[in-house]
Simulated assay, not measured.
Amino acid sequence: MSLPDSVTPLKIADAARAIRHVFVRDLLLDAHIGVYAHEHGRTQPIRVNVDLTVSEAAHSDRLANVVCYETVVNDIKALVASGHLNLVETLAEHIAARCLVDPRVIVARIRVEKLAAIPEATSVGVEIERAK
């Protein structure tokens, strides 16, 4: 499966710098999000993509030794379930901040898209990058 033309491929993993790339692709959730009155009191579909630049360390095939993508997903689900947000920008900032809590995460690139906000568009949203 190839990436859509609208998604820039990333080269984050880097052996020379001991950098690992941990990612979540196309996480589909229903969120209470939006600033307009018609967006309050209901959910709408969103898509979340996460790219993390992670400092590699030798590991012994133990989950505790890596940044776990399931933990990242569960954190995003908890943020989305925590209540209404007005802006996708706010959700992206919360996700980035949560990812950067892990000392191994150096950079977090987060993309949040609303999938039904504009009928003529496949999606609208924001992409941010935050670093320690």
Score class of each variant (00 low, 15 high):
5 D>L: 15
85 L>P: 01
112 V>D: 01
12 I>Y: 03
69 Y>L: 04
77 K>Y: 14
97 A>L: 12
99 C>S: 09
17 R>G: 04
88 V>Y: 02
109 R>I: 03
84 H>Q: 14
130 R>P: 01
124 V>D: 06
100 L>C: 05
38 H>A: 11
80 V>I: 15
61 D>S: 09
59 H>V: 03
22 V>T: 00
49 N>S: 10
85 L>G: 06
91 L>F: 01
72 V>D: 04
111 R>N: 12
44 Q>A: 08
83 G>E: 09
58 A>R: 14
21 H>C: 07
2 S>R: 13
129 E>V: 09
57 A>Y: 13
10 L>I: 06
55 S>I: 00
90 T>G: 11
33 I>D: 08
87 L>R: 11
108 A>R: 01
74 N>A: 13
43 T>Q: 15
21 H>S: 04
45 P>L: 05
33 I>L: 13
63 L>Q: 09
81 A>W: 05
73 V>N: 11
106 I>N: 07
71 T>Q: 14
7 V>N: 01
109 R>D: 03
5 D>T: 14
20 R>I: 07
72 V>Q: 05
73 V>Q: 07
39 E>H: 01
86 N>E: 15
42 R>G: 05
26 D>A: 08
82 S>G: 10
130 R>Q: 10
113 E>Y: 01
74 N>Y: 08
36 Y>E: 11
16 A>I: 06
102 D>I: 04
78 A>T: 14
33 I>T: 02
98 R>D: 12
16 A>F: 03
34 G>R: 04
32 H>V: 07
125 G>E: 04
73 V>C: 13
63 L>F: 07
12 I>D: 00
31 A>T: 04
8 T>H: 05
26 D>V: 00
38 H>M: 08
102 D>M: 05
34 G>Y: 01
72 V>Y: 05
3 L>I: 07
132 K>Q: 14
84 H>R: 13
117 A>V: 15
97 A>Q: 15
1 M>A: 15
90 T>V: 11
45 P>I: 02
67 V>L: 09
70 E>T: 12
22 V>W: 01
25 R>K: 12
90 T>Q: 06
51 D>S: 13
34 G>V: 02
131 A>R: 15
27 L>Q: 06
65 N>A: 09
125 G>L: 02
34 G>M: 05
85 L>C: 13
62 R>A: 13
100 L>S: 04
16 A>S: 14
57 A>D: 06
114 K>Q: 07
120 E>Y: 11
116 A>P: 05
26 D>L: 03
66 V>Q: 00
32 H>N: 14
63 L>S: 06
109 R>K: 12
92 A>D: 01
13 A>R: 07
23 F>E: 02
43 T>V: 15
